[in-house]
């Protein structure tokens, strides 16, 4: 069981710009993968497309998750198959209590696994303690007025509560101080299991000091250009993306190139 992406081409609907230009990726069950890459290279587009965001359109290729083709499935259908996207910019929804929302999401993603209110609260409390989240966040409105770090913790809290099969974490480390980074990393490590896999999108190798990936992929200009073990991340951190590009002999302009 795994996620298989074959020759995925994706464009942004709004301006017809092709962002993914033939992505191939394979994430077997039980593994944690990281995707690194310079800005504007399609990393977020990839996970948004996997989740089913309607801002993007698949023009070619296919996404197979545990044997099911995802290409034409709605966002909620994918979530119910076990996909989870920890968002880079989680939205704030006023009037909806965090705990009510998470309970509804658990019921939606695990329809056959009924939790009593007490069981739910116990698990919720356990996860909040684990992530060092103040308990009054249960009663606060979904992400409303949360700081950047609080929002990220809340994404990890949802992941721990929903127990997805595949968690995609889009720059979950951005805006986190070192303590929060450790807490978030603990949450991810805690999820490690035979039937769980993760895809961590990041710019820096910082989070990968705490969460050791099984595979590191590098994306440039809409493709996965190379893959390797955890040391690929530290190598990149030392040498930079431009050097790797030149070593690979790629003719790609990086967004931040002057």
């Amino acid at each position: 069981m795994s996620l298989v992406i074959n020759n995925l081409h994706v464009k942004i609907k709004e301006n017809n710009r092709e962002v993914l230009k033939g992505v191939n990726l394979n994430i077997p069950d039980g593994e944690i993968h990281a995707i690194m890459g310079p800005n504007g290279t399609g990393k977020s587009t990839l996970v948004q497309t996997l989740m089913g965001s309607n801002k993007y359109q698949i023009t070619d290729g296919e996404i197979i998750f545990n044997g099911t083709k995802l290409n034409n499935l709605a966002v909620d259908e994918r979530a119910r198959l076990g996909l989870f996207l920890g968002m880079q910019y989680p939205t704030e929804i006023t009037g909806v209590k965090n705990s009510d929302f998470i309970k509804a999401a658990m019921e939606a993603t695990h329809p056959n696994h009924h939790l009593t209110v007490l069981q739910f609260l116990q698990r919720f409390e356990h996860c909040m303690n684990f992530l060092d989240i103040d308990h009054h966040y249960a009663d606060r409105y979904l992400n409303e007025g949360f700081s950047g770090g609080e929002k990220k913790r809340n994404e990890i809290l949802q992941m721990m509560m929903l127990k997805p099969r595949l968690a995609m974490l889009d720059e979950i480390d951005s805006g986190l101080d070192i303590d929060a980074l450790k807490v978030v990393s603990n949450g991810i490590n805690h999820m490690r299991a035979k039937d769980f896999s993760a895809l961590i999108i990041t710019h820096y190798d910082r989070i990968l000091h705490y969460v050791t990936p099984d595979v590191v992929h590098v994306m440039m200009d809409g493709r996965v250009v190379t893959s390797g073990g955890p040391d690929l991340a530290s190598k990149l951190e030392k040498e930079g993306y431009a050097k790797l590009r030149d070593q690979l002999g790629l003719k790609i302009k990086l967004v931040d190139d002057e």
Binding site: M51, G52, S53, N54, A74, V75, D76, R78, A79, R80, F84, L85, M87, P90, T91, I93, F101, A104, A105, A108, T109, Q158, L162
Partner: peptide, 10 residues
């Protein structure tokens, strides 16, 4: 999108 990405129907 956010709510649906957590499994809630539209």
């Amino acid at each position: 999108y956010y709510l649906m990405s957590r499994g809630l129907s539209e």
